[in-house]
Nucleic acid binder design. Structure first.
Lengths: 126, 126
DNA sequence: CTAAAAAGGATAATAATTATTGATTTCCTG
DNA sequence: CAGGAAATCAATAATTATTATCCTTTTTAG
């Protein structure tokens, strides 16, 4: 049995995601880590993102301009996507964000596990 | 100035979208219309979907398994996506679905234009 | 330390979407 | 109804994000 969860590179990918609020794409992560890990491969980033997503350590928050964007902050919150520059920012509600999955009854659903709420508009910098 | 908005094929694409509740992909639309329009091209479907989306006649409701899915029902409602089979079904709230864009203040946003709320889970048929 | 398992690098393959180009259709104007 | 400009289209090539492959390297349990 393996006791250490993550390989070095997986750890680096995860920690980078934890440390940023840019909701990056695979490519952004790759470019950010490349200096410190010169032999990093883009495929490794993709593979580990999928793997971490499977673990529930990370989630895909949006697809912007055809690119999947990730977040390691797993507390319930939503996102605002700028339609012009693609920047993604966190949206917190003044009260605790409700668990909408408990507030809906969906005929066609056997089990509602989660939801994703995304706001779109233009950011202050655009 | 052109008075008739749509070409035949564009009209057909739009009307198909209006008549179905499957939230189809470009390919599904293409396959559905092909019998009646044997010279229809897949590129035409993609082009017109983007065009209709620009018009606000249609919207992209989700990306499922890497495929953009569209809806012509423009009244405010949300969607449930089955994580297994990819089926998308409408979600209406008992009260009128609130306009959340008026309920949030987002620092980074100059203008919040719309939002998209998607529930995920397993459908009754899976 | 060693062997087995997991992970990675490099690269090829996939697949959805977009762009191109030359032909066809649409529809305003006369 | 005809001419012509603009819009649209079909066919196909190009693009691009992502995934799969395959062989090597790293990691880890014992």
């Amino acid at each position: 049995m393996r006791t250490q969860n993550y390989s070095r590179k997986r750890q680096a990918i995860y920690e980078l995601l934890l440390s940023t609020d840019t909701h990056p794409s695979a490519e952004w992560i790759y470019n950010s880590l490349k200096p410190q890990y010169p032999d990093l491969s883009l495929g490794t980033v993709y593979r580990n993102l999928k793997l971490l997503e499977g673990n529930g350590a990370v989630r895909s928050v949006a697809v912007v301009d055809g690119c999947e964007r990730y977040d390691a902050k797993m507390t319930r919150h939503s996102h605002f996507v700028c339609k012009k520059c693609g920047k993604i920012t966190d949206v917190f509600f003044t009260e605790t964000m409700p668990d909408l999955t408990e507030k809906v009854y969906i005929d066609a659903a056997k089990d509602v596990e989660e939801y994703n709420l995304i706001f779109y508009g233009i950011c202050t910098e655009c």
